[in-house]
């Protein structure tokens, strides 16, 4: 499979859908992409660049959707969500209007841009909005499938896309409707990862296996509604679980897993790994930023071993 950004994989697939369904419209807040150039060129009536106006992006999208269009908004992630959060609450979530919010730049994707462009809080707030389905794909294959899945929804949807070209995750065939895929099975513990951290999880599992710790990796790409059954199932099969996210721990992916375990009275030990409550004015590449915030595979593997010893 050719290397492609998630953004281009998503919009290439959406373009194919839009050719046959002229109801599909993209409302972008001054964002471009090679894949969006095709929309501008071939489907001019289905693409609006609304400028740097995220609240208008949401409200115009809702007006279009209430008039029969299938609408996708598109912006850098903090602006697609946090900037217009209350507009999303009142006009999308509350009225249950099927608009898909596409954000690009998960986690530290914009590694040269500083914390204004980091998306490390969006998940915590977006997942509390009723009616929303949230996808957080880990590679371009899943990003393209997110275009299909969001197209088939009749409720609001939020899709978190990484900005970088990430390698394609190799796995056996899986049921995409389940919202997760098992990358590797194990007997000791599982790393539950989402988005870009799935690739880190595979590396962490490799490091731990050299220390005779048998760790499996599960990619959870639908964060809401999370598949509770797989969490219940694996909890009974291993001694511990750990979640991994390039996002604040408060209210994030790990929290959503913890909520399921608590509510289901599951006492399997859970370690949440993510970001502390702070911002990072760090540059020099994503790898460097991760080293500063203790998210590199080596540091995480060490942290898990320490946690297991304690």
């Amino acid at each position: 499979m050719k290397s492609q950004t998630m953004r281009d994989a998503f919009f290439d697939r959406l373009y194919e859908l839009a050719l046959s369904d002229r109801r599909i419209m993209v409302v972008a807040a001054d964002m471009g992409a090679p894949s969006l150039d095709k929309f501008r060129r071939d489907l001019a009536q289905q693409f609006i660049n609304i400028g740097i106006a995220e609240e208008a992006m949401v409200t115009v999208a809702v007006g279009l959707a209430l008039s029969g269009k299938k609408v996708y908004t598109y912006a850098i992630m903090p602006f697609a969500t946090l900037r217009c959060f209350e507009a999303l609450k009142v006009n999308v979530s509350l009225m249950n209007v099927p608009v898909t919010i596409v954000g690009v730049g998960a986690g530290f994707s914009y590694d040269d841009s500083g914390p204004t462009h980091h998306a490390t809080e969006d998940l915590s707030v977006m997942r509390v909005l009723p009616n929303f389905v949230i996808y957080n794909p880990s590679d371009s294959f899943l990003a393209a499938r997110c275009a299909d899945m969001s197209y088939n929804l009749s409720v609001p949807c939020y899709v978190r896309l990484d900005r970088k070209v990430l390698p394609t995750v190799r796995t056996k065939a899986f049921d995409i409707a389940a919202g997760y895929r098992i990358i590797s099975s194990a007997k000791d513990g599982y790393l539950l990862a989402t988005g870009n951290m799935v690739h880190q999880a595979v590396k962490i599992a490799g490091i731990l296996s050299k220390k005779s710790i048998d760790v499996g990796v599960i990619d959870i790409f639908r964060i809401k509604p999370i598949n509770e059954e797989i969490l219940v199932d694996i909890s009974s099969k291993v001694a511990w679980l750990a979640t991994l996210e390039e996002h604040l721990l408060a209210g994030g992916f790990g929290s959503s897993v913890a909520e399921v375990l608590v509510d289901r009275r599951i006492s399997t030990p859970l370690k949440r790994i993510g970001l502390a409550e702070k911002y990072y004015y760090e540059y020099g590449g994503r790898g460097y930023i991760r080293s500063v915030c203790h998210l590199t595979p080596e540091i995480v593997a060490m942290e898990i071993r320490k946690w297991l010893r304690d």
């Binding site: 609006i48 609240e55 208008a56 999208a61 007006g63 209430l66």
Partner: peptide, 8 residues
Amino acid sequence: GIGAGMAL
């Protein structure tokens, strides 16, 4: 904004 979307 919603009205503008409907009008469009």
